[in-house]
């Protein structure tokens, strides 16, 4: 695999909470343009991996190489800057801001206007502000909730909130979109719509890292899948192989019996 093809490499990433090994030397490689799945039982360390990747946690050892450069640990805004955007397992929107304002916050990173621009409202600030609003509207269209643009985020339905979070993440112009259990709590119809959306995002050139409990969704969507169990990667392959791997079956059906 050439360096050109690799977007993200995790090198022996480890994270402990006190005596608990949440992540134990996890290494994996994500290629450009793929949908990469990360699955595992509850407490396997999937979200911890996400938090290390996006700089919310500082990993004790190991490191990430993203797009050819080493990621600074412990700096969430820098992770976003180099092109890693994420959503949260327990949706974290700005509830008292409207849907469009939420997406406009996502544009913060790629825009420049400072205090002086805001106070003087000069031509370039006005133009930038208009561009922010336009892009936010486009993104709401893209995820299909433009009709709710001026509703407060906290008043949106659960599925729409998930979509809004994706739109906000996309507003940062990511190369890698990391989705933390986007289908959690969704019904069948909503999950199908989500699948279409994620496929579209990938087709439009954004690599997707997907944490998911819904094994069916992961197997249908992802090109490759890694399985975490007790903080260790026990398997990484195409879904068809992963599904038959005895260690994976054991992890999901109760490893303590084996």
């Amino acid at each position: 695999m050439s360096a050109q093809q690799v977007l993200l490499e995790a090198h022996a990433v480890a994270k402990h909470f006190g005596g608990v090994k949440a992540l134990h030397d996890v290494s994996l490689t994500i290629r450009r343009g793929e949908i990469y799945g990360l699955i595992g039982p509850n407490g396997a360390g999937k979200t911890t991996f996400f938090n290390c990747l996006t700089g919310l946690y500082k990993n004790e050892s190991g490191h990430f190489v993203f797009d050819g450069a080493r990621l600074a640990a412990d700096a969430p805004h820098k992770a976003a800057e180099v092109g890693i955007a994420r959503t949260f397992q327990n949706i974290r929107l700005f509830g008292n801001m409207t849907a469009i304002e939420n997406v406009m916050v996502g544009r913060h990173l790629r825009t420049r206007a400072g205090v002086l621009g805001a106070i003087t409202r000069n031509a370039s600030t006005r133009a930038e502000e208009a561009a922010i609003a336009r892009r936010a509207e486009e993104l709401l269209h893209y995820v299909g909730i433009h009709e709710r643009a001026h509703d407060y985020a906290k008043n949106l339905s659960y599925g729409d909130q998930r979509r809004l979070e994706i739109a906000r993440a996309l507003a940062t112009e990511p190369k890698l979109l990391a989705l933390d259990e986007p289908a959690a709590g969704m019904n069948g119809t909503e999950t199908d719509a989500l699948r279409v959306l994620v496929e579209g995002i990938c087709r439009d050139g954004v690599t997707v890292l997907l944490i998911e409990h819904d094994v069916k969704l992961v197997m249908g969507l992802c090109g490759r899948v890694a399985v975490l169990d007790y903080g260790e990667k026990i398997c990484e392959d195409v879904p068809a192989v992963v599904q038959r791997d005895p260690r994976v079956i054991e992890a999901y059906l109760g490893g303590s019996l084996a």
Binding site: R86, G106, H108, L109, R168
Partner: peptide
């Protein structure tokens, strides 16, 4: 303004604001 929205975002949810690159 862009700055005003960033302040509001921090007030609402600081972790999410960080993840948005603020």
């Amino acid at each position: 303004s862009r700055i005003g929205r960033a302040w509001q975002a921090i007030r609402e949810d600081e972790v999410a604001a960080k993840a948005c690159g603020i």
